[in-house]
C-alpha cells in the first residue's frame, strides 16, 4: 500500500516476470514519441520478460507486443509494481 510512495520503481528495476503499471515517462523529444507510439503510455500494464544474456537490454511485454529496450531508456519509465 505504501509501497509506491516509499520506493519509486523504474522499468529497469523490475525483476523477471514482474508486472507493473506505467506511471509516467521522463523522456523527452524523439524518445518520448517513440515510447508513446510503441505503447508505453501511462496506465498501461507492462511485464518484464527477461534480461538479455548480458543483462542489457531487457525484453518487456506491452499491449501484447514484445519490445526490447535498453536499460538506460527503461530507467526513464516510472512504474508501479503489481503485487
Amino acid at each position: 500500500m505504501t509501497q509506491t510512495t516509499a520506493s519509486t520503481l523504474y522499468l529497469s528495476d523490475l525483476i523477471q516476470n514482474q508486472r507493473g503499471i506505467i506511471q509516467s515517462c521522463n523522456a523527452e523529444g524523439m524518445l518520448k514519441q517513440k515510447l508513446l507510439s510503441m505503447g508505453f503510455i501511462p496506465g498501461t500494464e507492462i511485464m518484464m520478460l527477461r534480461n538479455a544474456p548480458l543483462r542489457d537490454p531487457i525484453e518487456v511485454k506491452v499491449h501484447n507486443c514484445l519490445i526490447t529496450i535498453r536499460r538506460s531508456e527503461a530507467a526513464l519509465l516510472r512504474i508501479e509494481a503489481i503485487c
Partner: peptide, 10 residues
C-alpha cells in the same frame, strides 16, 4: 543516434 527500442515480432 537512435534509442534502442525494437519490437521482437512473433
Amino acid at each position: 543516434t537512435a534509442p534502442f527500442i525494437m519490437e521482437l515480432p512473433t
